[in-house]
Amino acid sequence: MAAAPQLVLGFESSCDETGVALCTTEGTILGQALHSQIAMHKDYGGVVPELASRDHIRRLIPLMNQVLAQSGKTLQDVDAIAVTTGPGLPGALMAGTAFATSLAMGLGKPVIPVHHLEGHLLSPLLSATSPEFPFTALLVSGGHSQLMAVQTLGQYTLLGETLDDAAGEAFDKTAKMIGLPYPGGPALSALAERGDPTRFKLPRPMLHSGDFNFSFSGLKTAVLTTAMKLAGVAQPSETMVLNPQDKADLCASFQAAIVDVLVKKSIAATRESQHQRLVVAGGVGANRLLRTQLTEAASKRGIQVYFPELSLCTDNGAMIAFAAALRLKANPKLLNRQDYSMQTRPRCPLNTAL
């Protein structure tokens, strides 16, 4: 008789979302809950780390109780605790890690550290149509833009990464620069749908660099220069006024430039790795234009593209619980882990041992 699947309770608190989820080692999410801090940070135009950390502390227990109620399970049913230990905001990581570690110690259960990017990387495997190993992965979010060759669980090779701003960071900073409300990335993408993406000839940085690295700070500067000309000002200002159509066209042109670079480099990296599958993960993976153009470009070359469900593009507890569940299934000895000296790592490459 086959052993019953183990249950992993996962916690995510690396930035401005508090996520909790319960997952089986067979990859079934039994319950999940998420709280976004957007409303709290909106007045400041960006994430305030201290406020983020304190809010995580307030949310963790209520969200955990919500997940347990959803799943019909109790803490005594849980076999292991999982938590994001890096990368992310130091205080936010400490809030989640301290809580998860204390909970694990109190229950006498093991705690499994999870790399935030691995959670994103593996999240498309939770979709109804999920990829098989090996594949090439494009990780695009507010903090990261990377291309990875993924051989199997835990075997990741960095192919290229951003040399300055990440794609999501460029979206957010550009949106703020032209007066769009926080969070800027989704606001910019929504406005871009009403604009002409061919009106402004913006650069495609490193498109022909011969490698798989990215750079988006120069594109951001080009948008600023164009906005200043449209507003008739000699210096950048928070009071720059653009007419609605100019702003929509500028957003569309900016988005088209970023998507163009992401698509071409992702396809090239997938072919270089001799993979037939391309996985996209991270917040920018929800971008409609990126999904459309990447799917079309890949289809022409016989490459299958996989995206996570839209609800899994943002930071969430399900991806953390799932990543730990996969590791536990691959290595049942993790159930004997008694190390509670978790170390947070605000900056750490994906292949860093946690």
Rank of each mutant, 00 (worst) to 15 (best):
A298V: 06
D55T: 13
V223F: 10
A248G: 11
A252C: 07
S266K: 02
N336I: 00
T174H: 01
G10F: 09
S71V: 01
D246W: 04
F133W: 14
P244H: 11
T226I: 02
A281C: 15
Q37A: 05
L30Y: 06
V78C: 03
S71E: 00
L117M: 15
M206H: 13
L138T: 03
A52E: 09
F99H: 14
L147W: 07
Q76I: 05
A100R: 13
I267P: 08
T101E: 08
L202G: 14
E169F: 10
V305Y: 07
K109P: 09
P124V: 11
A69G: 03
A321L: 12
R277M: 13
A175Q: 07
L63T: 05
D196P: 06
T174I: 02
P49F: 03
A69W: 06
L310W: 03
S237M: 07
G185H: 00
F216P: 00
D260R: 15
K220P: 07
A98M: 15
A257M: 06
H56G: 00
T24E: 04
A222C: 14
A95W: 15
L34C: 08
R204P: 07
T239M: 01
P236M: 07
L159C: 10
I112M: 05
V305L: 10
M148N: 02
I320T: 03
G184I: 13
G168A: 08
D164S: 06
S130W: 14
M40C: 01
N316M: 04
P62I: 10
G10H: 10
A234Y: 01
A52C: 01
Q338K: 15
V47R: 07
E132A: 15
A252F: 01
A69V: 10
A167C: 06
M94W: 13
D211Y: 06
G96D: 09
K176I: 00
R347G: 05
S189V: 02
A21N: 00
T129E: 13
G106Q: 11
R347N: 14
G142Y: 11
L7I: 02
N287F: 11
H208P: 02
A167Y: 05
T239V: 04
A137Y: 08
G184P: 02
M105L: 14
L60S: 01
S102Y: 12
L30V: 08
P346T: 03
V8S: 08
L117E: 06
A192N: 10
G154S: 12
K333W: 03
P49A: 07
G184L: 08
